[in-house]
Design a protein around this nucleic acid. Structure first.
Lengths: 251, 251
DNA sequence: CGGGCACTTGAAGATAATCAATGCCGGTGG
DNA sequence: CCACCGGCATTGATTATCTTCAAGTGCCCG
């Protein structure tokens, strides 16, 4: 039921009922699906292996995706072959809104680990949209939030020092997991150091060093991709320290 | 017809026909207006003086705006009072899409010079949207393009050196003016150095220095905010120089 | 004419990048 | 089962770029 062409994956035909979905509270499409009727047309495919692409920059858009389990990174490729990660997606997150309208993906989406997805074909979106314009409002709302998040990241890159960026990133992850019912204090980062570096616009080495420094300062405990944060508040203080005394790290 | 409250401006009631508008080709809303009927409901207000706010971060959204003449900057404010410019708007540009859905502005918009605007009340949008969902598709398309632009800027900030950023910025401006029928080789920058600095995530001093360097290298001629670009190609080469030999600037 | 603001320029300093080498883990094959 | 390989990650030393601090200029507007 799952075909892979040139490393691009088309999901299968397993019909899925949003009403039963554990992610209902978080999932944008469950609202859409409700409006579209109980037989919502969302489809879940077999798990995708790590490193698979949902779509690539330049591809024609076929669907919106929701992460059911696992995680995905979104990135844009530069002419000289580098990649710039701008978002990590966790379960419940909607992927692909930025391609609506143009019908062409302007970014790529790749799984960070084994991942299952819901798939919402764009034809259905249009069909339901004609019946109920409120659905568009829903999507638009999501697009607006995405924009807002991008602006926040923009501020992070433009005005915060490396330490503040990484601290902020860790807090974001912590909060994301907390929202999903997992521990805010201990979690596994699904992405490589290189992905974090790209996301925060820093060198990999800098990320590595900062992890070590944070650990030495007892702000976190790191073992490979496992992170423990004893005091969220302590980390938060560092995240907004803007020019403050960071001597705590020097020792 | 124009009331100013706490430096926030509400435009007047002058009805405007998009069919006659010089910006029709560029203007997103003219399409919307066509779909909504010839009496489009767009309204143009008296010119706004320099430094006026269309809206501020946190404000409830009342309308979308289109720049008719003049220019506007969009920025987000950080908790510590700094501002981060993320977009400059020229005639024909649509402002305020990111607030749709939530109904609250997550950024501020401020004129850079005397500016006239068209105003499209959100109630009308909803009304027309119910009649014709295609309008939503139009807006969504715009939102998608905005996202894409933000990603490009993100790459610029994350992966390009100061010189490349400023060169890219100048090229963007040049192209913008060209699209609007003005000279691509000579134009007046409507924004302050500080705004450029914020937009490119650099210090004002760096911008100033780079302008001087560019001038010394005969890449541009600058006098205050007037810029002349003898060879667009030469500038383009610098914009994508990524680690190339910049000795041309050293002399 | 005077004040203030935007801009420019210089010198010093800091932060993060780059270069280079090594360590660790997981997987694969002998 | 062990050894080796490759990718990912860490760590150190050096360097470069850009920021910061400081001072000065010129222009616009009252």
């Amino acid at each position: 039921m799952q075909t892979t062409t040139n490393n691009i994956v088309r999901l299968g035909q397993v019909t899925l009922h949003c009403a039963e979905c554990r992610l209902r509270r978080l999932c944008v499409l469950s609202t859409l699906a409700q409006e579209a009727g109980s037989e919502c047309g969302l489809r879940s495919g077999r798990p995708l292996g790590r490193g698979q692409h949902l779509f690539r920059q330049g591809d024609r858009q076929h669907a919106l995706f929701i992460v059911r389990s696992g995680s995905v990174k979104s990135y844009v490729s530069t002419p000289d072959g580098l990649e710039q990660v701008f978002r990590f997606h966790l379960p419940g997150d909607l992927i692909g809104v930025d391609a609506l309208g143009d019908g062409k993906h302007t970014s790529s989406a790749q799984t960070l680990e084994t991942t299952t997805l819901c798939r919402f074909p764009v034809e259905l979106l249009e069909e339901y949209g004609r019946r109920d314009p409120a659905m568009y409002a829903q999507i638009l709302k999501h697009a607006g939030r995405e924009m807002s998040k991008e602006h926040h990241r923009s501020v992070l890159l433009a005005q915060r020092a490396a330490e503040e960026r990484l601290a902020t990133f860790l807090l974001q992850m912590s909060e994301s997991y907390a929202q999903r019912g997992y521990s805010a204090h201990e979690f596994n980062l699904p992405m490589a150091r290189q992905d974090i570096a790209s996301y925060l616009a820093l060198a990999v080495e800098t990320i590595s060093r900062l992890f070590s420094h944070f650990q030495q300062a007892n702000l976190i405990e790191v073992d490979r991709r496992n992170v423990r944060i004893p005091s969220i508040d302590a980390l938060r203080e560092l995240a907004f320290a803007k020019k403050k005394d960071l001597s705590v790290l020097a020792g």
